[in-house]
């Protein structure tokens, strides 16, 4: 479920780039501020994915430490 949601989120970026060739590309408007928004989203997504992975690893550790008691 989580993976599907992340995948959908990433797909939304691809749909943006489909319109890259048209003149009305929002990325070139307002002094290209949406480039900054995209960059921020990439970093935000990256950190969230990494935090989810850390959460999973921590869960594994918790299980291991509980089983060995």
């Amino acid at each position: 479920m989580k993976i599907k949601l992340i995948f959908l989120f990433l797909l939304s970026f691809i749909t943006n780039s489909l319109f890259a060739q048209t003149q009305q590309n929002p990325f070139y408007s307002n002094g290209k501020i949406y480039v900054v928004v995209t960059v921020m989203s990439i970093i935000f997504t990256g950190i969230i994915i990494y935090l989810v992975r850390i959460d999973r690893r921590l869960k594994k550790t918790e299980r291991e430490l509980k089983d060995n008691k």
Binding site: N30, G31, K32, I33, V35, V39, I43
Partner: peptide, 15 residues
């Protein structure tokens, strides 16, 4: 450079 110069606060600190 326009507004993208603000990426200085995101792209550069990554490295």
């Amino acid at each position: 450079m326009d507004e993208t110069v603000r990426n200085l606060n995101y792209h550069v600190p990554m490295w």
